[in-house]
Structure formats: structure tokens, C-alpha cells
């Protein structure tokens, strides 16, 4: 099976997204980048370091666990909580960039918006994802997309990152692959 995104594709996509974020927000001074664990958090830290190297100033970055805000808690077995680390400056009045690896049903992002609301009231929230695979179940869209990957619902999209999996690649697995 060939990779839908190779190491070079991922690197180029993240660099482009970083520039788009800076362009849309006129710089990084108001930005707080929050990744959704686990791989969304890895991507958030990568975006932050790319933006830092472009702008030459540190960027606020952290992680946001959404487990306790999921809407399937009453039907699925409880899962362990992941780490949440909000930068000291908080989110009040900031532009929060939520980061996840794959955008699918949109339910994770809905949960993330709820989780964020409990921490504070950001000025605005934007969404960056590495892959948008379609099949939305809620009226949610991404502001910054690495790659649109049309998929069948029966397929699954696997994002592998160096931090966790030793390699950067995106694979599509499943029936029609």
C-alpha cells in the first residue's frame, strides 16, 4: 500500500499551514496553539517550532485533552485521560489554533470547543488539521488543511509521526484500498 502522504508531503503541508496561519492572523503575537492528544499535540508543537523559526519569537503552545467532553461517554468504555497543558498566559482574549491530525466526523472538535470554553473565552478559534477525510456529522470545517483525502467510510486513515511511530506518513487502510 502506498502512502497517501509521504514524509516530504507532510513537511511541505505543515510549512504551508504555518505561513497561512501567520498570514491570516498578521503574525504570531496573539496566537495560542493547542493540539489535541496524541498526534494532534505532536503536530501542534511542530507548527509552533516552524512559526517560531519564521517569526523569530516564541509561540504559546500546549495540549488540550477532550476525553471528558466526548458525546459518546455513555455508550463507550471510559478511556484514560491525556495531558492538558495550557500556556501560562491562558486563552482569554487570544486567537486559539486548535490542531488535530485527522478531521472526520467533527465530534472531536465539538468536544474541544466545549473543553476550551471551560478554560476561558478566546477572542477567536481556528482549526488546523493535517488531513480532512470528509464524512462530517456536524457543521464544522477546518481553516487550515494539510491535504483533503476523499475516503470511503469503511476505510481508516492512519497518521504516523516520527515522535511516536518513528516515521512520518499518512496511510489509507481498509476495504477499497
Amino acid at each position: 500500500m502506498s502512502a497517501a502522504l509521504t514524509t516530504a508531503d507532510i513537511s511541505r503541508a505543515l510549512t504551508r499551514i504555518s505561513h497561512e496561519i501567520l498570514e491570516r492572523n498578521s503574525g504570531s503575537s496573539q496566537l495560542t496553539i493547542l493540539g489535541i492528544p496524541t498526534r494532534g499535540a505532536d503536530i501542534a508543537y511542530r507548527l509552533a517550532s516552524i512559526i517560531e523559526s519564521i517569526e523569530g519569537v516564541p509561540v504559546e503552545v500546549g495540549t488540550l485533552d477532550i476525553t471528558l467532553h466526548r458525546d459518546d461517554l455513555r455508550i463507550r468504555a471510559p478511556r484514560p485521560l491525556m495531558e492538558t497543558s495550557i500556556p501560562a498566559a491562558g486563552v482569554e482574549g487570544r486567537t486559539v489554533i486548535l490542531v488535530d491530525d485527522v478531521l472526520f466526523s467533527g465530534r472531536t472538535i465539538r468536544s474541544a470547543l466545549d473543553a476550551l470554553g471551560e478554560i476561558g473565552r478566546p477572542e477567536r478559534v481556528q482549526l488546523a488539521v493535517l488531513v480532512d477525510r470528509g464524512h462530517r456529522e456536524l457543521p464544522i470545517r477546518a481553516d487550515f488543511v494539510g491535504k483533503n483525502l476523499p475516503t470511503a467510510k469503511s476505510e481508516s486513515v492512519k497518521v504516523r509521526l516520527v515522535e511516536r511511530d518513528g516515521i512520518d506518513e499518512v496511510l489509507i487502510e481498509g476495504e477499497s484500498a
Binding site: L73, R74, I75, A77
Partner: peptide
């Protein structure tokens, strides 16, 4: 959380 959430399923 760990003992009650999702208990409907079980």
C-alpha cells in the same frame, strides 16, 4: 468516571 461512564454498554 472510570466506573460509571459507559456503564450503559456493559
Amino acid at each position: 468516571y472510570l466506573f460509571i461512564a459507559g456503564s450503559q454498554e456493559s
